[in-house]
C-alpha cells in the first residue's frame, strides 16, 4: 500500500473507531466504573509529572525572559509573559506531550498485548464490544482529564515562575502575581482549556487505534507503542497550530 493510500486508510479506520466509541457511550451496558478507573490512572497518575514539568517550565521561562524584559525596562510584565505563554501555548502542548508519552504508550501497549494474546477476540467471543469496553472509557477519560491536568500544570508553572523571579531576580511575588492577574484574559483561559479537549481526543484515538491494529506478536506491540507516541505527539503539535488559529478567529485571542 502506498503511503498516501495507507494514510487515508488509517484516517478512515480512526474515524470509524471514534464514531463507534461515541455511539457506544449511549448504549448499554455502560462502563462507568472503567471510565472512572481510567480517569484515575490518567489524571491522578499523571499529576506529579505534569506538576513537576509545569513548575520547571514556568521557572525556566522567567530565567530566560527576565533579563530581556529588564533590558527594555519591562520586568514588571514578567508574570504576564509567563502566564500568557503557559496558558495559551506551553501548558496545553507540554501536558499533551507528557500524557501522550506516558498514557498513549500505556494504552497502545496494553491493547496491543491484548490483541496478540487473543484477549480482544476472547472479549468479542464472550459478547463484549471491545470498542465500548476499552476505547470509549479511555477516550472519555483523556478528554476530561487533560484540561484538568493542563490547568494544574499552568498553576504550577506560574508558581515556579514566581519563585524564580523572587529568588533569582528579587522581584516581589506580589508584583509577579499582579502582572499575571492583569495580563491574562478570560479568552486566554477559555482557549487554554479548549485545546486540551482536542488533544485528549487525538491521543486517545491514535493510541487506541494503534493498539487495536497491532500485528506481529511482541515486536508488533513495541512498534505500535512507538508509533502511537510519535504520531500522537506530531498530531498534537500540528493541530495546535490550527486550533490556535481557529481560537484567534473565534475568541479574538492573541491580539494585543
Amino acid at each position: 500500500m502506498n503511503p498516501l493510500k495507507n494514510f487515508i486508510f488509517q484516517l478512515q479506520e480512526i474515524s470509524l473507531l471514534v464514531w463507534q466509541a461515541f455511539i457506544g457511550l449511549f448504549r448499554k451496558p455502560r462502563y462507568l466504573s472503567e471510565t472512572i478507573r481510567q480517569m484515575d490512572l490518567i489524571g491522578v497518575g499523571s499529576l506529579p509529572i505534569v506538576l513537576l514539568t509545569g513548575f520547571f517550565t514556568g521557572g525556566v521561562l522567567i530565567l530566560q525572559t527576565y533579563p530581556t524584559l529588564e533590558y527594555y525596562g519591562g520586568q514588571s510584565e514578567a508574570g504576564h509573559a509567563v502566564a500568557t505563554s503557559l496558558i495559551r501555548e506551553l501548558g496545553p502542548v507540554l501536558t499533551a506531550l507528557i500524557v501522550s508519552g506516558r498514557i498513549g504508550s500505556a494504552i497502545s501497549a496494553e491493547l496491543g498485548s491484548m490483541v496478540v494474546s487473543q484477549q480482544i477476540d476472547a472479549m468479542r467471543a464472550l459478547g463484549t464490544d471491545p470498542t465500548r469496553k476499552l476505547v470509549s472509557p479511555r477516550i472519555v477519560a483523556l478528554i476530561f482529564m487533560l484540561p484538568l491536568l493542563t490547568v494544574a500544570g499552568d498553576v504550577f508553572g506560574i508558581i515556579g515562575g514566581s519563585i524564580v523571579a523572587s529568588n533569582l531576580f528579587n522581584q516581589p511575588a506580589n508584583t509577579f502575581l499582579s502582572s499575571v492577574r492583569i495580563g491574562i484574559t478570560p479568552q486566554d483561559l477559555i482557549g487554554g482549556s479548549i485545546k486540551p479537549l482536542f488533544f485528549g481526543l487525538i491521543i486517545g484515538c491514535i493510541s487506541c487505534y494503534k493498539g487495536l491494529s497491532t500485528t506481529g506478536g511482541t515486536v508488533g506491540v513495541g512498534r505500535s507503542t512507538t508509533n502511537a507516541v510519535v504520531l500522537s505527539s506530531i498530531w498534537v503539535i500540528v493541530f495546535d497550530f490550527f486550533i490556535s488559529k481557529a481560537l484567534q478567529t473565534v475568541l479574538d485571542i492573541g491580539r494585543l
Binding site: P29, S117, Q118, Q119, D121, R124, A125, L126, G127
Partner: peptide, 30 residues
C-alpha cells in the same frame, strides 16, 4: 448469537488483569 457459543483459545486468552474467578465470571458480570 455469541451468547450461545463458547470458545476455547489456543493459549487460553485469559484476561491478565483479572483473577481466575473474574475471568470465569466475565460473561455473567457483563
Amino acid at each position: 448469537v455469541r451468547q450461545k457459543m463458547g470458545m476455547v483459545f489456543q493459549e487460553g486468552a485469559l484476561f491478565d488483569s483479572l483473577s481466575v474467578y473474574e475471568n470465569v465470571a466475565y460473561r455473567l458480570h457483563e
